[in-house]
Design a protein around this nucleic acid. Structure first.
Length: 605
RNA sequence: GCGCCCGUGGCUCAAUCGGAUAGAGCAACGGCCUUCUAAGCCGUAGGCUGCAGGUUCGAAUCCUGCCGGGCGCACCA
């Protein structure tokens, strides 16, 4: 069910009256659904169908317009049970339908047994006003019914600047949040900070290494285990004098400090916060913001892991065992493998391939153990549904985390992990290194500065997240006019321009009554505007933000075609007013869609 | 060897939880600015949806097996 919103209706230019309605798109579909259900019940009453539960049938919008505005496959789905030919059953169903229908012009049986429905012109015209009156709310729905969803995304390790791959996950997550919010979910955006692992110590020691360099006034070779990036020096230079002094002091007095040293602790905190600030800055430039930044370190300190493992133990889901050496020909040499007994989570009880270790040889917890605790924590905070957006290189973790959550809660399908595939960054066709360890890599910030937030955001959403994405820097910059985002924005700017022209030429605005519209191009445009709310819902339900990008490109294309074939500012005021109303509706949908993508809708270009 | 993802015109990708004649963009070719922005539009050409089976009224979509590419595979994250 769509939301109930109030709007003004202006049929035939008469006085406005207020009444309630559902989403325009859903309204018709709901109506059709009732009809089809009614027909099915009728033929069932005639004894053509058993009273058992029936297979699901659908109401769809056919691709081909001559197949109507809506169609149902009900007769085909039910034909076997009825032991009739699909077309015959369709005829019997239609025979039960009353003749006088206000919004449907006609219906027919077509093809292998589809029932097609054709909406009246006046109903289509009416949609234009419904869109205008709904305004920024057009496309929103209450589908989610206030379900509490946490979306965890980005969660890049605070050990260096974000790369382009992070950016794709960030944009995907952000738009997904916007979609879920628009469809009536209560969304919580969270960033999980991996500030507890060994890589944090490496960061601190990398800073330390640079500090030693400065003190000795030489350039030392940078060992492999340190982060080589320039930003490490930035961290050093940003350090408050007191910390710098104690760092230098400790370096002057061997033996070198260990990780429990207070100076080292302070250094680590400072470095992590510096990098997080850097990351936050990048995200700001993309207009991406979080409700909460969740620290893994605090999770440890507050005993979250013990808490989670205690529950698992109580359910007998932890046992001591040893893993078998993985077989066969990975790249990694397997000769260092040593068999040892360790506490394992019984992931195999929930569909994973092997049981998973919870402790490292030194007795500390594995990353997986912390992840179990974190996801339990999410669940205990009262979220109905969890969505994680991970890079594809973490795909191997999905099963075990799902398994852990099911083991802890006894519920399946609380968590959905959306894997975002790799971004292949190239420059002039040549691959560009993106590893933090490579030192000289292109950061997300570089790309946003060169290409711009709008283009970057849009480009990331021009592919399903399961598909790998090619991102060529030269192409994005040099041929930026080919970027689809400008195509869509241009449609919006054009409409704004028309409205400006209206003023400049001193033309009357007219009645803005869409009921004078009659061109096929206009009806097609209206039909497509009606698909928007369904597109938003399907993008949200399927967790596929890219659908909005494709929809907007199609809508822009339809508008450009219309614009080129038809003069909006017609000499006849009534026609002009009708077309302006339609443009208004198109502009509204472009605005709403771009807003969902976090992309600006410029008034002029 | 195992798990996950992906194979769709020359290239990059869509395709409404199985629907009717598989669609766009780029590249190629030919047209359209004395009227609202040519960052645009119109037209032409291009396909055995990797291969082979199966499921059913109906398959790019689901199942099985191959082929090819990507990611991952105790202890790091």
């Amino acid at each position: 069910m769509g939301p109930t919103i109030r709007f003004n209706r202006r049929p035939e230019g008469k006085e406005s009256l207020i009444f309630e309605f559902h989403d325009p798109g859903e309204h018709m579909k709901d109506l059709l659904k009732q009809w089809v259900d009614g027909m099915v019940n009728q033929v069932r009453a005639q004894g053509l169908l058993p009273h058992d539960p029936l297979p699901a049938y659908r109401i769809d919008r056919p691709k081909e317009r001559h197949h109507g505005d809506f169609s149902t496959n009900a007769a085909m789905v039910l034909a076997r049970i009825a032991r009739m030919k699909p077309r015959d059953l369709a005829e019997r169903m239609l025979a039960t339908l009353p003749r006088d229908q206000k919004d449907i012009e006609r219906w027919e049986v077509a093809g292998p047994g589809f029932i097609n429905f054709f909406v009246t012109t006046s109903r289509l015209q009416q949609h234009v006003h419904e869109i205008i009156d709904a305004g920024t709310r057009y496309g929103q729905s209450s589908l989610g019914q206030g379900v509490k969803v946490m979306v965890e995304f980005v969660s890049a390790n605070p050990t260096g600047p974000m790369h382009v791959g992070h950016g794709r996950g960030a944009v995907t997550g952000d738009v997904l949040c916007r979609l879920l919010t628009a469809t009536g979910h209560e969304v919580h955006r969270e960033y999980y900070i991996n500030d507890a692992g060994r890589q944090i110590d490496v960061l601190a020691r990398s800073v330390q290494h640079r500090c030693r360099e400065r003190m000795e006034g030489v350039t030392l070779s940078t060992p492999d285990e340190f982060y080589p990036g320039e930003y490490v020096i930035d961290i050093l230079e940003a350090m408050p004098p007191s910390l710098r002094q104690s760092l230098e002091g400790s370096l002057a007095n061997p033996p070198p400090l260990d990780t429990n040293d207070t100076t080292m602790t302070a250094l680590t905190r400072f470095a992590v916060n510096w990098v997080l600030e850097d990351i936050r800055n990048d995200l700001d430039r993309l207009d991406i913001h979080f409700d909460q930044w969740f620290s893994e370190r605090e999770l440890h300190e507050q005993g979250g892991i013990d808490h989670a493992l205690k529950i698992l133990r109580a359910k007998d889901l932890i046992h001591d065992g040893s893993l078998e050496k993985p077989k066969g020909g990975g790249e990694r040499p397997q000769d260092q493998w040593e068999t040892r007994r360790q506490p394992l989570f019984r992931a195999t009880a929930f569909g994973d391939d092997v049981d998973r270790p919870l402790q490292k040889p030194d007795g500390t917890y594995t990353y997986f153990a912390a992840d179990i605790a974190y996801h339990l924590n999410k669940y205990e905070r009262g979220f109905d549904r969890l969505v994680n957006i991970w890079g594809a290189d973490h795909g191997g973790y999905v099963k075990r985390v799902e398994a852990a959550l099911e083991g802890l809660t006894g519920k399946k399908d609380i968590l959905k992990v959306l894997l975002v595939q790799m971004v292949n960054l190239t420059r002039n066709g040549q691959p560009v290194r993106m590893s933090k360890r490579a030192g000289n890599f292109v950061t997300l910030r570089d790309v946003v500065e060169q290409v711009g937030s709008d283009a970057v955001r849009f480009w990331f959403l021009t592919r399903a997240s399961a598909s790998q994405l090619d991102f060529d820097l030269d192409l994005a910059v040099a041929h930026s006019n080919d970027n689809p985002v400008y195509y869509v924005q241009y449609a919006h700017a054009r409409i704004c321009s028309i409205e400006r022209q209206l003023e400049e030429k001193g033309l009357e605005r007219g009645l803005l009554d869409a009921h004078v519209l009659e061109l096929e191009a206009e009806m097609d445009l209206i039909r497509f505007l009606n698909v928007y709310p369904e597109t938003v819902e399907s993008a949200a339900v399927h967790l596929e933000p890219h659908r909005i990008a494709f929809y907007l490109q199609d809508l822009a294309a339809m508008f450009h075609t219309y614009y080129n074939s038809t003069r909006i500012l017609d000499d006849e005021p009534r026609i002009r007013g009708g077309r302006l109303a339609l443009c208004h509706a198109v502009r509204q949908v472009l605005t709403n869609g771009l807003k969902l993508m976090g992309v600006k809708a410029p008034e002029r270009m």
